[in-house]
């Protein structure tokens, strides 16, 4: 409980400091809006030319896109410490400062950055979700709403977990950001479309190693009233837990890695 209070307080303070430069903040937020708008434009153009993707209709495609967008960028806003700031903190030695305080390193990392510019992306994602919901005529029930929230929440844990791979690489001072990007940003790009368009190896990758399919696509299929890849309906509520599993595993790896941390500077 105390940790959550600390996190909220940190976030409030970081917001305050970001708003010290309003012009820059506005400009960058606008850039983010255009960026995510461009991503959505690609989906719109695809729909315009192809009408559908396997059994998925335009509304379904917008829904998948929106779900990924909202989840991914919520993680980027509130998990910025892990998704963006961590490598810099290792390089500059800021991580030392965190180790000098009587709190968990991961907690403090999460408390050390926020990226409110990404709210612009979340706005686009929400619009896509709304559009998809209308076009696909989703009949919302409380259960479906709950499932959507669950999917987003565990999706955030999953993405956070994947970004922690990069953090672990950083601790061992391995420089291969691009390699990790393949799984994080690549995973986002791949899984903003339904999983069934991919060949078996990619499907296995996104079900077992980076289980976007379990965390997002199974619940999305349930919400869209589509068959759950042959699984019973209740699995839609269990599958997202895989996100927590990835996070837990990466958390343990991260803790182990911290034992090998070798600080910078003299």
């Amino acid at each position: 409980m105390d940790t959550i209070r600390l996190y909220i307080k940190s976030m409030r303070m970081l917001m305050k400091s970001q708003l010290q430069y309003p012009a820059s903040f506005l400009m960058q937020t606008l850039a983010q809006l255009v960026m995510e708008g461009g991503e959505m434009l690609a989906v719109i153009l695809i729909v315009d030319r192809f009408d559908r993707l396997n059994q998925w209709m335009p509304g379904d495609l917008y829904f998948f896109f929106g779900l990924m967008s909202v989840t991914f960028y919520l993680t980027e806003v509130f998990g910025r410490g892990v998704t963006g700031a961590f490598p810099g903190m290792v390089r500059s030695g800021q991580l030392d400062t965190l180790l000098l305080r009587p709190r968990g390193v991961l907690t403090q990392t999460l408390c050390s950055a926020i990226d409110p510019r990404r709210f612009a992306c979340i706005a686009v994602g929400t619009a896509a979700l709304a559009l998809g919901s209308r076009l696909s005529r989703i009949s919302w029930t409380p259960l479906k709403g709950l499932l959507l929230a669950e999917s987003v929440l565990f999706g955030m844990l999953l993405i956070l977990g994947l970004f922690m791979i990069e953090a672990v690489f950083c601790i061992y001072s391995v420089k291969s950001v691009e390699l990790v990007n393949a799984i994080t940003y690549g995973g986002r790009s791949a899984c903003q479309y339904p999983i069934d368009i991919y060949a078996r190896p990619l499907r296995v990758l996104f079900t077992v190693a980076a289980p976007f399919a379990l965390v997002m696509h199974v619940p999305a299929a349930y919400i869209l009233d589509k068959p759950l890849y042959g699984w019973p309906a209740w699995t839609a509520f269990v599958c997202p837990l895989a996100g927590a599993g990835v996070f837990a595993v990466m958390y343990l790896v991260f803790r182990r890695a911290m034992r090998h941390y070798r600080s910078t500077g003299s």
Partner: peptide, 16 residues
Amino acid sequence: GAVIGGVVCQVFFGLI
């Protein structure tokens, strides 16, 4: 290292 990582990443995007 960065070149190899970049190639792997780009190949991945290509496949997708």
